[in-house]
């Protein structure tokens, strides 16, 4: 089999010396795979995701993303260029228009010219379905629209991998679908994705593998949406009974 595009090897992470958020997590993600991570609050899902692009620095082990190790600090910005991230709270830049949100990093990180950055941005805004909001400011948009802009902003860097940390948890129910549709479309186009989310609909439509985490460890892993439909571990069953 080919090399994994993300290789997570026995990763440990502590907060303030006493909280162990990750206790030896290992996971390989292959190109084009869509991995979904579920688990109770505080189980380390966000920490794992944020370790992949080094927003959290791991204390032990290694994560290699497309040849870049998170332990090589000189290489971090190169690594981050390959990894797009979408946050629960959108984190759009409120002082910039939607268009500038999507163009800024293209210009200053990817060093693209104004015209190329603009065309890429408009193409992506069309893709996520809100080209007409290009000149609006983020706070003038609904949550669902903001999250779609955030996806466009991440995609504008042409990442090889997209990370999603509970992208629909902060949304009103009627807006969840519009964001999931964009994500499902992205999965169909072959994007490698690691998604922390409890949306079973997304698992059914797009996941190649689902993983259950609890207290900093991977408890169970199953192909497609079988983790939801046919859980093996007691802890998985217990967790699913609470959220479903």
């Amino acid at each position: 089999m080919e090399e994994p595009i993300i290789s997570i090897r026995d990763v440990h992470k502590y907060f303030r010396d006493d909280i162990q958020a990750l206790r030896g997590v290992s996971l390989d993600v292959y190109k084009g795979e869509v991995i979904m991570i579920i688990g109770p609050s505080g189980s380390g899902k966000s920490t794992l995701l944020r370790s992949i692009n080094n927003l959290e620095q791991i204390d032990f082990g290694d994560i290699i993303v497309d040849g870049h190790s998170v332990n090589n600090h000189k290489d971090i910005n190169a690594l981050r260029m390959e990894v797009g991230m979408v946050f629960q709270q959108f984190n759009l830049f409120p002082h910039l228009t939607v268009l500038d949100n999507v163009m800024l990093a293209q210009k200053i990180v990817r060093k693209r010219g104004e015209k190329e950055a603009y065309e890429t941005a408009m193409l992506l805004l069309e893709k996520v379905g809100i080209p007409e909001k290009a000149s609006a400011f983020p706070l003038q948009l609904s949550g669902g629209q903001q999250q779609r802009v955030a996806i466009a902003r991440a995609l504008a860097m042409n990442p090889k991998i997209m990370l999603f940390d509970e992208p629909t948890s902060a949304l009103d129910p009627e807006m969840i679908q519009e964001v999931l549709e964009v994500m499902i479309q992205l999965a169909k186009e072959g994007m490698t994705m690691v998604v922390v989310s409890h949306e079973m609909g997304f698992a059914r439509a797009a996941a190649n593998r689902c993983i259950l985490m609890d207290s900093g460890k991977i408890i169970e892993e199953a192909p497609n949406d079988e983790l939801f439909t046919n859980p093996k571990e007691e802890r998985t069953k217990l967790f699913l009974s609470r959220i479903l």
Binding site: A105, V109, R153
Partner: peptide
């Protein structure tokens, strides 16, 4: 909010950028 810096860094911006 810390998310502003994180979003910027996750896009590959350096700290000064």
């Amino acid at each position: 909010p810390a998310g502003q810096m994180e979003a910027a860094r996750s896009l590959g911006m350096t700290q000064p950028q």
